[in-house]
Computed example of a mutant assay.
Amino acid sequence: MTTRTILLAAGGTGGHLFPAAALAQELARRGYAVELATDERAEQYGSDFPARAVYRIPSATFTSRSPLAVMKTLGRLGTGFLRARRLLEMVQPLAVIGFGGYPTLPPIMAARSLGIPTMIHEQNAVMGRANRLLSRFADGVALSFSPTKNLRKSAEARAQVTGNPVRDAVAAYRKVAYVPPEPAGRLLLLVFGGSQGAHFFAESVPRALEQMPSPLRWRLTVVQQVRAEDLTDLREAYKEANIAAHLAPFFRDMPERIANAHLVIARAGASTVAELTAIGRPALLVPLPHALDNDQLENATRLEQAGGGWCMRQSDLTPDRLANELARLLGAPDLLAKTAAKSKAMGNIDAVKKLADLAEELAGPVE
């Protein structure tokens, strides 16, 4: 029987690659061969991507309106388009599915030029700029939130809400019940800034924890993802505050660490919110303040409105305020437990199956 292949295209960050990996795992279970087109940034996350092959396609983001910069970007996208077209002619996929970011532009546009069916998936509550452009002609548009802001009117008839799929490693911890902190017991706090870490948390969190009441501070164990250049200073800050801390630039067992946490402090990227709600853990979300279209703020607000966590703007988050908020939350195990339950109720664990169903429909029947 001829191998049925589907090509996935994703920007090279965890926010794009993780849901693509979830779909790749589900499609493999259904007998498809999966290949991935991405960019150079994927090295940290793409090495374990469940694909038969991973291709790097040239791409670029429009970061300036100057004529020279625009021409340079268009030139690189053009190179990516030609390389993507040659790749598609070689791989001959039944469908191409994009997960956002400008690296999805060349493969999706090349697929359209060759008459290969296409679909895009939007992880955030606000349509990303690359996806907004591609939604003009993609055969299908899969959404994680309803409603999704900035969805083109012309794309509404082709749009379906699937949710944001999570990897098998995340879904496995949905069965692990949340256990609130016991009186006088350890308090496990997990801090991470998305797949690439956050300098802001390295500066603000230890200063806040240092100001917390001693009975709470002595009970703390902090697990924090931190940029390599901040590691030494952060380790010293926790040592001076006499707080037990486990620090690393990247945790490959992040789903397990989320499941073990009593409270999570994190950015509000779409994959972060999807994984928190799939496992069901209470979170204090601090959206990236300069994110395009305020997508992280929108994601965090949706979680807060559902009662699954709290949203605090970075501009409002002084060490004093963060210390008071953490003392309030960590001192209220019943509140944490209720919030964990509401977070879990938001989790769409069937998202990957819904997305895979659309992918199979796009690929067409087995001949």
Rank of each mutant, 00 (worst) to 15 (best):
T3F: 00
T5Y: 06
G12E: 02
H16T: 03
F18H: 10
P19W: 12
A20Y: 02
R29K: 12
G31W: 07
Y32P: 00
Y32C: 04
A42H: 03
Y45K: 02
G46A: 10
P50T: 13
A53V: 10
A53E: 14
A53G: 03
T63C: 00
S66Q: 10
A69C: 05
A69K: 14
K72Q: 14
R76M: 14
L77P: 00
A84D: 01
E89H: 09
E89C: 13
V91I: 15
Q92S: 08
P93N: 07
F99C: 01
F99Q: 07
G101L: 05
P107G: 14
A111L: 13
S113V: 00
N124H: 05
R132P: 06
L133E: 02
G140D: 09
V141P: 05
F145R: 00
S146P: 00
P147I: 10
R152G: 02
S154Y: 01
A157M: 05
G163T: 03
G163N: 09
N164V: 07
N164W: 03
D168R: 12
D168V: 08
A169N: 08
V170G: 03
V176E: 13
V179M: 13
P181E: 08
E182K: 15
E182G: 06
P183A: 15
R186I: 06
R186C: 04
L189V: 11
F192R: 12
G194L: 11
S204I: 15
V205W: 01
A208V: 04
L209G: 05
E210W: 07
P213S: 13
S214M: 09
L216I: 15
L216A: 11
V222N: 01
V223N: 09
Q224F: 07
E229T: 11
Y238C: 06
H246L: 10
A248T: 08
P249H: 08
F251D: 00
F251Y: 14
S271E: 03
A283V: 05
L285A: 06
N294V: 06
N299L: 08
L303F: 07
L303P: 11
R313K: 14
Q314E: 15
S315E: 14
D316G: 03
D320K: 10
D320G: 03
N324I: 03
N324M: 09
R328H: 14
L329Q: 09
G331A: 10
A332V: 07
K342G: 02
G347C: 14
A351E: 09
G364K: 13
V366K: 13
